[in-house]
Structure formats: C-alpha cells, structure tokens
C-alpha cells in the first residue's frame, strides 16, 4: 500500500466480499526514539506498526495474533483513535474518518468501543456499577434518567448479571464478573465494533469459556463486529471469522479462520502453530521450534522481517520485501515462497 492515494476516501473495494464496515489501509505507527534532555534529538524510530491493511464486516470477528511487541495493541489503539497513524488511514462505512467533520468522528468513537485484558484497571473503583455502565450514555445521549436506568438493567441482564449488582462497586466483583461489567459498558452505546484486547487471558481457566460464550451470544444478538487480539491460537479458532498473523509490525498472513488452520502457509504461522500447546497428549505436532527471539522493532531486519529466524530463508529474503500474494479465496500471504 502506498500513501499517495491515502486521502482519496473511496477506492475500489478490496478483494474479498465488499461491504466492509471498518477498513485499515496501509496503517503505520512509528514512535520516535529521542536522546538528550534539553535539546532532544530523534535518533531512530520504533516501527511498531509498519503498513497494515485489513477489513472488518458486520457481525464478523477478526483475530490478530502474533508475539509480544509485534504491534497488535498499537494497531488497536489506532482503530480506537487513541493513537494517530504515522501513515495510512482508517475508513468507516466508506468514509475516511480523519477527513470527516468533528460530528462524524464523535459518532465513530461511539461506534467503536473497547474491552481490555485487565478487568481490574479498566473500571473506576469509586463508581457504582450502575453509574459506570450509565456514564457513556449520560455523556453521549439525551435520554431521561428512567430510560438510562432501564437500559442499565437490560445491559446487566445481557451480560449475565442482575439488578442486584447495580449498586455494588467493582472491587466487590470477581475477575470474570468485572470483565462482564466492562463488556456491558462497552455495549451501552450500541457500538458497531468492539475491540477486544486479550479479553480472557487474565481470567481463570474455568471462567474463560463463560466470557467467550457470552461474547459469541452478544454478537449473534446484536450483529456487532469484533477485533480480537489474542496470543492463544485455539481461542482465535473458536472466536474468529478471519485471522491476521502479525510479525514485527506487519501482517504476514491473513485468512478466513478455517483456511488458516487447514492450510497455514507462511513459515511464521506454521512456527506459531507448532509452538502452540496441544489439546491432547497424542496430538502429533510438526517440530519447528524457532530459535532466538523477535528482533527489535527499532531496527527490523531488511527484506522479509522474518528472515533472521526463518528455516526456509533464501538469499533474496534478506533483501527484497515480499509482496502480498493470494493463495486461496481471501487468504493472502507475504512470503517469497509463494
């Protein structure tokens, strides 16, 4: 993706399906690294996200997987308008959000909500549950107190809590219940998209399935789209329609979930799958343990970012950046093997 046409709001719909609700086009986020106290000098850039494109359709879930530091949360923050992209843009219902007026951007912020990993830190401890859930509505909507109260009860009920919980404070809830509260709050403004950044990884094993099933049920009921960030491939298989595999700021493989697991194509995707823990002692896994660790995003390897660890690397992998190739319907890979 180049940025030359980044300002043009409409362009040919990308390959698969069309009618995207939300699109990321060539998103980059470079964080400057500075030296010096008084006169600070930029000495380099952390290429946290380095040209990422994907789309999300109504009622679907896009999973983003990859190792720590590969840029998943930074991508999420750009989608939430919590970080400005260094390059590239975001299109929502066909229009580029940064090029629209303030009212449309506000509407976008209401339509795209978030639930984070840590249910302990994301809820204000001094607010009662009913006020926590009502807060976004009080700020954004002009509706009566009784309407708000009614909606709070409906939302609590939606996430499997009851009216009794409305008067409690967050510390009176368990981790799983707190995640339910965060979900209720995220749902309050009828969002079209919810960004879920590791929503179950801090929860106890027995509670994870409760929350995953709840998220699936709510999606079926409200047709909301999810962007789900997760480490755990099995979780992604259970929850997602699409999966993007990221490595050092780039998407190396993007695919419908079924096809990704049936036919993982990028060497990094294969390595992630062979490193994932099996669900049965008799599961036979391809032995492909990657050596070393992810290189620094401050100075990512040239050419294919993965060439320093790739068992299939060829001479030109360290020189030429691989292009995006389609290997199946909607299934794309960036690797010189294809």
């Amino acid at each position: 993706m180049t940025t030359a046409n980044a300002i043009v709001p409409e362009s040919g719909a990308p390959a698969s399906g069309g009618n995207a609700l939300l699109e990321a086009v060539g998103l980059k986020k470079y964080f400057p690294v500075t030296k010096g106290l008084l006169i600070s000098k930029t000495t380099g850039h952390i290429k946290a996200v380095d040209g990422v494109s994907f789309e999300l359709r109504p009622g679907e879930t896009l999973g983003i997987v990859g190792e720590s530091g590969c840029g998943k949360s930074t991508t999420a923050k750009m989608m939430l308008m919590l970080e400005d992209p260094t390059e590239g843009f975001i299109r929502f219902e066909g229009s580029e959000i940064r090029a629209t007026d303030a009212a449309t951007r506000r509407e976008y912020r209401r339509s795209v909500q978030a639930v984070f990993q840590d249910p302990w830190s994301s809820l204000n401890p001094r607010m009662r549950v009913k006020d926590l859930i009502a807060e976004p509505m009080v700020i954004n909507w002009e509706i009566s107190r009784s309407e708000i109260q009614e909606r709070v009860l409906k939302l609590l009920n939606d996430v499997g809590l009851s009216a009794y919980h409305a008067n409690l404070y967050p510390h009176e809830f368990s981790g799983g219940q707190r995640q339910r509260l965060a979900i209720a709050r995220a749902l309050s403004l009828n969002p079209k998209v919810i960004v879920l950044d590791e929503p179950v990884s801090a929860l106890d094993v027995s509670i994870r399935a409760q929350i995953m099933n709840l998220l699936k049920d709510l999606q079926a009921e409200y047709n909301v789209s999810y962007m789900l960030i997760a480490h755990h491939l099995a979780t992604v298989r259970y929850m997602c329609t699409w999966v993007a595999v990221m490595y050092l700021g780039r998407i190396v493989e993007l695919s419908p979930v079924k096809d990704l697991f049936a036919n993982p194509s990028h060497p990094y995707t294969k390595a992630l799958m062979s490193a994932a823990l099996p669900s049965h002692p008799d599961t036979v896994q391809e032995e492909m343990i990657l050596t070393g660790e992810v290189p620094s995003p401050l100075n990512p390897p040239p050419g294919c970012h993965f060439h320093t660890r790739c068992p299939f690397a060829m001479d030109h992998c360290g020189v030429d950046e691989p292009q995006v190739k389609e290997v199946g319907p909607g299934h794309t890979v960036s690797c010189h093997l294809f």
């Binding site: 094993v205 027995s206 509670i207 994870r208 399935a209 409760q210 995953m212 099933n213 755990h232 491939l233 099995a234 979780t235 298989r237 259970y238 929850m239 079924k258 697991f261 799958m273 994932a276 099996p278 669900s279 049965h280 599961t283």
Partner: peptide
C-alpha cells in the same frame, strides 16, 4: 470441555458456571 482446541472446530465450549 471448556478449553478451545487448536486442532479442531468446537461448536460450543462447555461453560462451568
């Protein structure tokens, strides 16, 4: 029954209430 599997599709996870 409550953990998702990487090797196969699971229709619905069992959820321990």
């Amino acid at each position: 029954a409550s953990v998702p599997r990487m090797e196969e599709d699971v229709d619905r996870l069992y959820s321990i209430e």
